[in-house]
């Protein structure tokens, strides 16, 4: 099964092949050659509530959560979110207008919280690093800033509003 993936700002192609008693996984970081891994099913096992993975004889205990295309892998106190698109998802994305996988025209909340202050209005041009709004979550106020020079299209929230995680806060045009 073929995937396109993105993790830690790098794009990858991944091929997963399952045989009766083993896995073949090939990875290709953008601009590099394919790397091939082969391991037996007993090397990648489901325990009660974890995955035990013997990777090149290193023993990893892992847990994975999936939300849409985001797969977050937890192990050894670290975690990494990997975006994975299979053929169906790649097709779907291409129908939406051929945008690159990581491009975005909106900013969403990372966690639930409350909007304390909004600094911008629709139609306003902002520079990278300009403050857009202040959001309060877990007793802390967090200032969200523009990542690029953009023009504000719509502000979807108002001051004082309580919001859920992954709520679109502001959309903009580049």
């Amino acid at each position: 099964m073929y995937f396109q993936a993105e993790a830690n700002d790098t794009k990858y192609e991944i091929n997963v092949h399952e045989s009766r008693d083993g896995w073949q996984v090939s990875l290709k970081p953008a601009g590099s050659d394919w790397i091939h891994y082969e391991f037996s099913k007993s090397d990648y096992q489901y325990m009660d509530d974890t995955i035990s993975f013997l990777f090149k004889n290193s023993s990893y205990l892992l847990d994975v959560t999936a939300a849409g295309v985001d797969y977050t892998v937890y192990t050894r106190g670290a975690f990494r979110t990997v975006k994975l698109y299979n053929e169906e998802k790649i097709l779907h994305e291409s129908l939406k207008g051929g945008k690159s996988l990581a491009s975005s025209d909106s900013m969403a909340s990372e966690m639930p919280g409350k909007i304390v202050k909004v600094f911008v209005k629709a139609g306003q041009a902002v520079k990278a690093g300009d403050p857009l709004l202040i959001m309060e979550a877990m007793k802390m106020e967090n200032e969200l800033r523009a990542a690029h020079d953009v023009t504000i299209k719509t502000v979807h929230v108002t001051e004082g509003q309580a919001i859920e995680a992954n709520t679109v806060l502001i959309s903009f045009t580049k």
Binding site: M1, I51, F55, Y60, T75, R80, N86
Partner: peptide
């Protein structure tokens, strides 16, 4: 530094599969 980066990718891909 305590994790081989590819472990994240392989595990995510196996679970997506």
């Amino acid at each position: 530094m305590f994790v081989d980066e590819n472990v994240f990718l392989i595990t995510a891909a196996l679970e997506a599969y």
